[in-house]
Design a protein around this nucleic acid. Structure first.
Lengths: 148, 148
DNA sequence: TAAATTTTTGAATATAATTCAAATCATGAA
DNA sequence: TTCATGATTTGAATTATATTCAAAAATTTA
C-alpha cells in the first residue's frame, strides 16, 4: 500500500480541479447552466488556464522560499530568455521573470530547507552565462497567491 | 443582463473549485473513494488550503507585473510586519515577503498597466515607514505559478 | 422595427461525489 | 509468529452536480 499523497500533490499542483458551478450559481444568483455557459466561454477565450490546488508550502517540503536576483555575464552572449528557460525547468523554481533594473532576471525558488537550496544553487546558478546572484530569503510570507 | 465575468473571476481567484476525484482516480490507478478519503485527509491536515482557477493575467487587466524591493525608515519604528500587512491589503498585491539581504520587504504587484501601477505606488508606497523602494518591472514572465 | 446573434433558462440525462459498511492492509504488542 | 488494533481501500447505494439541448429572453445589428 503506497502513500498516495506525493502523487496527488503533484497532480493537484498543476490541475485536476474544476469549478463548482452550483456553488457559483448560488453565490451569484444565476442558474448553474448560465455559469456553465460563461465559464466554458472564458476557457475558450484562454482567460482561465487551469484549476488547481493551493498548498500550505510549509507542509509539503517547500518551507524555504527565496528570491534570486541574477546578473548575466555579457561575455557569454546568452540572452536572459535562454538562461531563464533553463532555470524554469527546475521543479523548485516557482517563477522566472525577465526584469528591468539592476538585474536581468528574478527567480522565486521553493525548497524544503536551506540545505536543499544550497544544492539547487550549486547546480542551477553556478553556470556559464550567470555572472552574479543575490539571494533574498523569505523570513515570513505575509501574503501569497492564496488569500484566505 | 449583467456581465458575469468580473464576479466569476473574483470568486475563482480565491476558490469555488474542487478536485476531480474520478480523473485523479483514473490517473493514479486508485478508486475514486480512495482518492476521496486521501484528499479529505489532506484537507483536514491543512495541507491543501484551497482550490482555485489560474488566469492568463494579460487577459484580466493584470498585464503589468512588478517586484518592489522596500527599505524601511528606521526612524519611524514600524516593523516590516506592520508595513507588510498594510501592503497586503491592496488587491493589486499578489505577495508580500519579509526578506534577508539589503531590503526588508519584497512585494509582487499586478496592475493593468504602468499608469495603474503609478497610482498604486503613490498611495501604497509613499507612506511613513517606507524609506526607499526599487521597482523591478517584469518584461517577460518565463514561468509563473501555472506550468502548462 | 425586424432580423440576427448572444445569453439565459428549464428539463432531461449523464457523471461524478459522497456515504457507509465491509474487506483489506499495516503495525505493534504479546 | 500470532493476534488485536487502527488505518486505508473498496464496492454498492445514494445524493449531488455537471452537461446537453431546445426554447425563451435579452441584446445587438442592420
Amino acid at each position: 500500500m503506497k502513500n498516495l499523497r506525493p502523487e496527488l500533490i503533484e497532480l493537484l499542483k498543476k490541475g485536476y480541479c474544476t469549478p463548482r458551478l452550483s456553488r457559483l450559481a448560488a453565490k451569484t444568483g444565476s442558474k448553474a447552466t448560465t455559469i456553465h455557459y460563461n465559464i466554458k466561454q472564458m476557457e475558450g477565450d484562454g482567460i482561465v488556464k487551469s484549476y488547481k490546488a493551493v498548498f500550505d508550502h510549509s507542509k509539503i517540503e517547500e518551507g524555504f522560499c527565496t528570491f534570486v536576483l541574477i546578473n548575466l555575464d555579457r561575455r557569454e552572449y546568452k540572452t536572459p530568455e535562454e538562461i531563464g528557460k533553463m532555470l524554469a525547468k527546475y521543479q523548485q523554481v516557482e517563477s522566472v521573470d525577465i526584469i528591468t533594473g539592476g538585474w536581468e532576471l528574478i527567480v522565486k525558488v521553493r525548497t524544503k530547507d536551506i540545505e536543499e537550496y544550497y544544492e539547487f544553487s550549486k547546480k542551477a546558478l553556478l553556470i556559464r552565462g550567470i555572472d552574479r546572484t543575490q539571494t533574498l530569503s523569505s523570513l515570513l510570507e505575509i501574503k501569497s497567491e492564496f488569500v484566505g
